[in-house]
Every structure is written in C-alpha cells, then in structure tokens.
Design a binder for these strands. Sequence first.
DNA 1: TTAAACTTTCAGTAAATATTGAAAGTTTAT
DNA 2: ATAAACTTTCAATATTTACTGAAAGTTTAA
Lengths: 166, 166
Amino acid sequence: MQLDEAKNQFIQAWGALGSSWGINRTMSSIHALLIASKDAMTTEEIMDTLKISRGNANMNIRALIEWGLVKREMVAGERKEYFSAGKDVWEIARQIAKERAKRELEPVTKIVADLQTIEDDSEDAKQFKETMANLEDFTSKVNGTLDKFIKSDKNWFYKSLMSLIK
Amino acid sequence: MQLDEAKNQFIQAWGALGSSWGINRTMSSIHALLIASKDAMTTEEIMDTLKISRGNANMNIRALIEWGLVKREMVAGERKEYFSAGKDVWEIARQIAKERAKRELEPVTKIVADLQTIEDDSEDAKQFKETMANLEDFTSKVNGTLDKFIKSDKNWFYKSLMSLIK
DNA sequence: TTAAACTTTCAGTAAATATTGAAAGTTTAT
DNA sequence: ATAAACTTTCAATATTTACTGAAAGTTTAA
C-alpha cells in the first residue's frame, strides 16, 4: 500500500466514524487529513485534496478550531493561513470529550435534576423520580470522571486507566 | 410541575441528546417514554403518545429491541405485544456502549491496524505510522475498558470508577 | 378455514442537514 | 488610498435521513 492510499483510507474511516457519532463528515475528514499530514496545510490545499468547496472548507476548519482540535499557523513571509492538527491521541480524545460533555450532557443533567421536584406521590411518580435520581447520579459520576480526565495530564489518566483495566 | 409534564420534558431532552449523538430522535424518544413509564406499553399507546405513525413506531421499537434496550412482554390473555425498557441506568449505558463499540469502533480499529503496514520510509510516512500506532494503542485500551465494563456487574464498575475518580 | 387482530414492509414524501459558489468583507504591502 | 491576496458569509441547492400510511403478511381463536 502507498502512503497516499493509506492516508486516504484513514480519512474515509475517520470521516465515517465521525458521521455516525453526529459530527459531520467533512469536519472529521479535514481533521483526519490534518492528523495524517506532517506539515500544516492551507485552505486551498485542503479544498483540493478533499474536493470540497471553499465555503465548506472554511466553515469546518473554523468549527475544528472552536473545538480546539486544529490550530492556525502563520508561516513567516507568507500571507496565507496554515492549519494543523495535534497528533496526540489522548489530547484529541480529551478535547472531544470536553466539548461534547459541555454541549450535550450538561443540558440534560440540568433538566433531569429539575424533574425530581415534581409533587405527586402516585406509584408511577415515585418510580419516575427514582429513575431520574439514578440517572442524575450516573451522569454526575460520568462528568466527574470526564472532568478529571480533562484536567489531567496524559500520565495521570494513563495510570488510572491501567490500574482500572488491570 | 405535573408528572406528565415532567415525563414530557424528559422525552424531549433524551430525544435531543440521542439525536446529537447519531441516534435518531424517535428511537431515543420511545426509549425515554418507556423508561419513564411504570408499565409496559403497546405500539398503539406509543404511537398515540408520541404522535408518530405505525411504521415509524414499529421500526424504532424493533431497533431498540436489537440494541437490547427494550423487551417484548406478553400479557396473559392479551393478544397485543407490550414493550418495556430496563430502568437500570448502568445497564442502559452498558448496552449502548457495547452496541456502538461493536458497530462503529471495531471497523476503524481494524483499518488503523492495517495502515501501519505500508512500506515507505519517508519522514512523512514515519510520522503517519507513529500516529496510527498511537491511535491503535488508544482504541485498544478504550476497548479493553469497555469490555470489562460490558462483562462486569454494576458493582465492579462502580467500585473501579470510584477509585478512578477518588 | 376464515376472519379478526395484530405486526411488518416499503415506495413515496417530508424534513433536516450539509454543500456550493459567488459576492461581500478584511487585511496587507506599496 | 488602493488593489491584490486572502477569508468569511449566506441564499440557493443538493444530499441524506427519517416518517407516513396503506397494503401485505402473520398469528390466533373459534
């Protein structure tokens, strides 16, 4: 297999993975392309390689920057902007976990907490409240772990995980 | 707040959460409805409550059953099928993790392993292989943890998690 | 067996989401 | 100040994904 072919397959696979987890295909593909590339790339190069429009490239690069997965780089003497992605997989996972927890888990946790305040003592309501309480307990534990993970350096998490999986 | 209103909000929130994680809204809503309901429900009741068509209800109920999140129940003397969802949040998380890892993580892991076999010793290729190796290491660790999680009883995971987050 | 009670399928349609590309906006060098 | 080099925006459009509902299929009781 050639390097180019390998990169290509990686871009495909990463793009598909993203899209089945609710991240748009182009965003994941650009991310994959930058992960697989040694050097930083310009918008133009990204457009050409992935055969996407300027607008699409621009929007998704910006999204990746917002997620903290890609950063802008200036090359001395050049007017263009260059983009690169971190190669540290732990860091990538951390960033993704952080963003998604913030955007999607937190709002639900808030609602679930509220829902336990209903005043109704039917059997049905009792059971509902119990389920919500369990759910809150669970999400707060997940969040707690994520928080530690997010704040931790790679080593801390690595060690904990190792001891966890023995 | 009334119980019905609370259930409603929960259904909305759970549905939105699912859809931002690549699980369709109806599927998550039905799941939420069944989690929030003390008794098992028929297709008819689900259709009415969520205002969805028969076909949609049927397809998503079947998907939930495939995922192991919902089960059919027969009520003695009744011809209709009743459906209910487990209320144990740990079990739910376990089931979801298991299904998604199988469907979406495994294929990528396989590809990533392959991609390290390219024969090319440019700097660029060297770096690419290194990134892929890290990625493989990472996913295998995640998978290992998931496996333990999936096979474990609630207690095992609870204890491990507690020690992890201290 | 047959007909009522129920479940499943699927072609057509609707809704949500992503993409394009041209125009507007911004920055920089001279 | 201005024009070239570049970035951003957004309305129109294409693509993907989900939903409907009627028809076909299945099961059960008598």
